[in-house]
Structure formats: C-alpha cells, structure tokens
Amino acid sequence: MRDTLVLNASFEPLSTVSMNRAVVLVLQDKAVVEQSHPELLVRAAAVELPVPRVIRLCRFVRVPFRKHAPWSRRGVLARDQHRCAYCGRRATTVDHVVPRSQGGGDTWLNTVASCAEDNHRKAARTPDEAGMPLLRKPFVPSPADAMLLSLGARQREALPEWLGRSA
C-alpha cells in the first residue's frame, strides 16, 4: 500500500499514513490534497478523487517537540537506503558496529544496514577487528528526515522541492 505524507496546517511534516487513511481524512474535510499521483484515481459511487501523495491537515495539531527520531531496524535500513555499509550491495539486516556482546546497543550511531553475508562475516567483532571498514558513518536523522526517508526513494523524488530538500 502507498504511504501518504501528512503535513500539519503549517506545512511541517507530521507522519505518514496509508492511502486509505489519507482518502478518509480528505473526504471528512479534515485534510486537503497538496500533491497527488498524476494518473491514479480513487473511485466510488459518487466520488472520484486523485490518489493523495501529500495531504495537509486543515487544523493545526500541536505535537510535542522530539529532538531525535526513535530508533528502529526499519529506520536504519531506510536511513542507509537499504545499502550495506560494508560492501554497498542490497542490505536486508541491521548490524551493530560495536557488537551487543561488547556493550553496544540499539542506537542510531551503533547500527548500520548490512547484507546477510557481511553481517555473518563480521560476527561479534568491531569493523576494525574484522578488517571491514564502513563505507559511510552512521548518523542520527532528525524526526522529519526519518519520516521522509521512510517514504522511499521513488516517492521522495516526486515530492515538491521545498519539502524533499531535508532528506
């Protein structure tokens, strides 16, 4: 199912929702479509609506300030664009830079996307111990960056320039 970016009334990214939820918000006049898929339509008996790619809420929603995005395996894979930090091939798993057995934890700066082969080859060693240098350093994405990364490359490319620049 396609994800739709939800903007606050002030145009700040809030979250992503399923296409179905986005359509419901628009039909209930709680949101307006800011950008839609050019050729896709949702049709019902009395309604025809372009499939929303970006919607904006009609009323401002106060959100508590969050300095960092919460860590998740899915977030690490999205941050690293599903590319292995050791060889650059397609990544399917997450590797701990400092292994959990050596005191490393589930944090943005201690985890990278990895292919299964390199994850197995590195085992419970640091990249230096295994002779496997990182191609790029892990970083902590902002909450807005994490949300935009979760949309996927194909959808990010289609977002308005003013919105996609932070990703």
Results as ranks from 00 to 15, higher is better:
82 H>Q: 14
98 V>S: 10
52 P>I: 06
65 F>L: 03
110 N>G: 13
142 S>Y: 03
56 R>N: 03
114 S>C: 13
16 T>L: 00
44 A>D: 14
163 L>Y: 07
56 R>F: 01
110 N>E: 12
63 V>W: 01
39 E>L: 12
51 V>Y: 01
118 D>P: 04
87 C>L: 09
116 A>W: 05
140 V>S: 11
5 L>N: 06
141 P>W: 01
92 T>M: 10
42 V>Q: 06
66 R>F: 00
7 L>N: 05
87 C>Y: 02
112 V>S: 13
43 R>N: 12
101 S>A: 14
57 L>M: 15
18 S>F: 03
3 D>F: 04
161 E>N: 11
98 V>F: 05
155 Q>D: 14
29 D>C: 03
14 L>G: 01
152 G>C: 08
38 P>V: 11
70 P>L: 01
143 P>G: 08
24 V>K: 05
97 V>C: 10
64 P>I: 04
98 V>E: 13
5 L>F: 05
28 Q>D: 13
36 S>E: 11
15 S>V: 00
105 G>K: 08
99 P>D: 10
78 A>D: 14
115 C>Y: 10
25 L>T: 02
104 G>S: 06
142 S>W: 04
161 E>S: 15
41 L>N: 09
1 M>Q: 11
17 V>S: 07
33 V>E: 11
50 P>C: 04
101 S>N: 05
150 S>N: 06
5 L>W: 01
55 I>P: 05
52 P>A: 10
138 P>C: 09
11 F>R: 08
7 L>T: 06
68 H>K: 04
152 G>F: 07
26 V>R: 02
122 K>E: 12
21 R>W: 01
28 Q>V: 03
65 F>G: 01
108 W>D: 14
86 Y>F: 14
21 R>S: 09
105 G>W: 03
72 S>M: 12
103 G>D: 12
50 P>D: 09
128 D>L: 15
143 P>H: 08
132 M>V: 04
13 P>M: 00
107 T>G: 11
108 W>A: 13
92 T>F: 09
71 W>S: 07
57 L>I: 04
109 L>Q: 15
85 A>Q: 09
39 E>A: 11
98 V>Q: 14
148 L>Q: 00
128 D>R: 15
35 Q>E: 10
125 R>M: 14
34 E>L: 00
104 G>V: 04
74 R>Y: 06
131 G>D: 08
104 G>C: 03
6 V>M: 03
6 V>F: 01
147 M>Y: 00
38 P>H: 09
137 K>Q: 15
36 S>T: 02
118 D>V: 03
41 L>R: 15
108 W>G: 13
119 N>S: 13
111 T>F: 04
103 G>N: 11
152 G>M: 05
136 R>Y: 11
73 R>T: 12
64 P>V: 07
116 A>H: 12
112 V>T: 14
149 L>E: 12
117 E>T: 15
39 E>Q: 12
21 R>V: 06
94 V>S: 07
22 A>E: 03
140 V>P: 07
100 R>C: 12
103 G>W: 05
53 R>T: 11
47 V>P: 03
8 N>Q: 09
139 F>V: 14
30 K>M: 06
